Computed example of a mutant assay.
Amino acid sequence: MKISKDFYARDAITVSKELLGKILVRKVGETFLKGIIVETEAYIGAIDKASHAYGGKMTERVKPLYGPPGIVYVFSIYGMYHCFNIITKEEGTAEGVLIRAIEPVDGIEEMAKRRFDKTIDSLTNAQVKALTNGPSKLCIAFAINKQDNWVDMTESEELYLEEPSDNKTISDEDIVETTRIGIDYAEEAVHFPWRFYIKDNKWVSKK
């Protein structure tokens, strides 16, 4: 079942935790790629110096951050890689969740081709683990790029989230809360415990 807009229309921290265990679905041609979200980070523009919208910043690049809940915000890093975010809260409030890592479920052969231009059987164990264990890695594997900016995941048939088939939720005991990665510039926000991941999952980017 596709996840509805009401799910996203809440604060980024709550949504970050509850995204764990949800299924990311991407249709590429006739192939469906699916994976379990295992690691997230929350960003809250009003108080967060790590957010692209801190202090009410509004540029063409960050406009999606102010969009309605459930839309996609993709940004570039190092001029060649992408990071995939889902907007939360209400329209006009810059909050969102970075998807940091995915556990592959379906379409793994396509992911292997996109990440390493190899078949899944030819990958080393380290390469299999590296298919989607980082924000830019999962974007390559799932063919997510800036063309996906503004996509409404509650309406799209090509990029959306769904509940796991068993409707299993991740318990608080199985969620690790810690600091975010790669934001050394963000002063006190470096210490915000706004990264969340499923304990003992091998696809988490960093433990």
Rank of each mutant, 00 (worst) to 15 (best):
H191I: 02
S136K: 05
V190G: 06
K206E: 12
L159M: 06
M80W: 04
P164A: 10
R195N: 03
K49P: 08
F32H: 09
H191W: 08
V38Q: 00
F75K: 13
A130G: 05
P69T: 05
A12P: 03
M58E: 14
N149L: 08
I3L: 12
R61E: 06
V204F: 08
K89I: 02
Y197R: 12
G92K: 04
L161V: 02
E109H: 12
I87P: 05
Y66C: 11
G182L: 03
T40Q: 01
V74K: 02
V176M: 06
Q147L: 10
S165V: 11
E158T: 15
L19I: 04
I170R: 02
E155W: 00
G21S: 11
H82W: 14
K202E: 13
F7R: 05
I87Y: 00
K129E: 13
Y185S: 04
V28H: 06
I44K: 06
Y43L: 10
T169D: 06
Q147C: 03
S4M: 10
R10A: 10
L98I: 07
S156I: 10
E39L: 06
D121C: 14
D48N: 11
T59D: 13
I144M: 01
K202A: 08
T88L: 06
L24R: 07
I71C: 00
T40G: 09
R10N: 14
S51T: 05
C83P: 07
I175S: 10
A141L: 12
M80H: 13
E173F: 08
I181A: 02
Q147T: 12
V97H: 07
E158S: 15
E177I: 01
V151W: 02
E158W: 04
A42G: 09
T59G: 04
T124I: 10
G29V: 06
F75D: 08
H52T: 04
S136N: 13
